[in-house]
Design a protein around this nucleic acid. Structure first.
Lengths: 223, 223
DNA sequence: AGATTCCCTTGATCTGTATCAAAGGTCCGT
DNA sequence: ACGGACCTTTGATACAGATCAAGGGAATCT
């Protein structure tokens, strides 16, 4: 289950650089590739590394014993994930599509943080933005309707990955559903509804390329 | 709306001491009392203070424009709340019952954190436990049934406030419902169901004093 | 102590979303 | 190009939990 088919040391390269805002840290970094669907780390596994998405997309999720899944976050290009304060990961992380990550040894980061107050501050501020996202998501999961959730999702993705007005979603309907606490059918129906209202359009023959035609209209749906 | 009827400077006393794990910080502290239902701070208000519950209980929540409410956390005796990294509060906090808090000026805390790595680490670890709670709560809100949510709530409260086997809940059914993403009727029905199964008992003539008669049975209901 | 307000439970009914089902469509490897 | 696995949509139906409603307690105030 935890075997990583990409775990080939030959794919690794060492170099020194930055991991997001940690510009002042001198930490050991490597690049690493994961195939679509590959597990990057598992829930409750020791948290040895911190990751940054260089290319691709990642989902972080928790499972209930009977297989129900809640995706806590999507990590897109530039995002840092897998940062833990405790000894273990609290989510499973998987590559949604073929993904390249940069990784830093967690201990080396912590070591730097102990002497460098600015790095310590960066760690806190990253944790705080994760917290803020989780807080907003609790409101969505606890109190929003399916249409409001999908609208909120589209606005979030638009903000985070829109290139030239087109949104190329890396995740499928089931991923979106498990992020929003819905079923994939309900997500599909909500998207069809928004399409019918002229709020969004699908591009080409795929349903994962979305153009937002009416952002104010969409924002009005997300209370 | 933001007027605090308890905001009487005469109620304040200054002294130096500790705020939770921040034992090494020399920060200015005061004690302050809030009546049942009083707002301690509002969402989007400047975050001037950090609070610790000395006595009583507090709810932190977000509202949608039409009044739907999501309680993100309950703060019980000993808990620290209102800790922000950014400039403003992201929740409204209200006293559930008459409550005494200790408060520390946020800037003084931050100032100490800049020079004291141990304090900085405490701030991070507090933020991390808030994050962990929010992550677990996302799973509950997104994927658990009403009975599972209520079971999880009872186990959480049992862990956090059980004195001598009796759980004296400070919050009403509506608060529980808004914490669990349910209605108060559904919470009431779930509690009746657990009562019927012999998993819990009500004490005295009030329904807020609960005894857990079968913790393993309850844990089995929370997947 | 009586009155007012709030709180909790329980029943009846409704509804938003899940579930079940089926049919194209798209992507991928051969 | 072809076959198979996956993905998405759409329709029909079911159901968990919401909503509506009412009545009995419990806490609080005067």
């Amino acid at each position: 289950m935890f075997v990583n088919v990409n775990a080939n040391p030959a794919n690794r390269q060492k170099f020194t650089g930055e991991l997001g805002g940690l510009t002042r840290a001198e930490v050991i970094l490597s690049e690493f590739k994961y195939n679509r669907g590959a597990e990057i780390f598992g829930e409750a596994e020791p948290a040895e590394y911190v990751y940054q998405v260089i290319d691709g997309a990642v989902r972080s999720y928790k499972l209930l014993s009977d297989g129900r899944r809640q995706i806590g976050a999507f990590h897109l290009v530039g995002d840092i994930f897998g940062l833990e304060n405790g000894p273990v990961h609290r989510f499973t992380a998987e590559a949604i599509i073929d993904t390249t990550v940069r990784l830093a040894k967690r201990v080396s980061l912590e070591h730097v943080a102990e002497t460098d107050a600015l790095v310590a501050r960066d760690l806190l501020s990253m944790t705080t933005s994760n917290l803020q996202h989780a807080e907003d998501h609790m409101l969505l999961l606890g109190r929003k309707t399916s249409l409001e959730r999908v609208a909120a999702f589209l606005l979030e993705m638009d903000r985070r990955l829109s290139a030239a007005g087109v949104m190329a979603l890396p995740m499928n309907r089931r991923d979106i559903a498990d992020y929003l606490g819905l079923t994939l059918e309900t997500v599909s129906r909500a998207l069809s509804c928004l399409h019918g209202k002229g709020i969004l359009g699908f591009l080409g023959q795929t349903q994962r390329q979305i153009i937002l035609l009416d952002r104010p209209g969409l924002a009005r749906l997300d209370l």
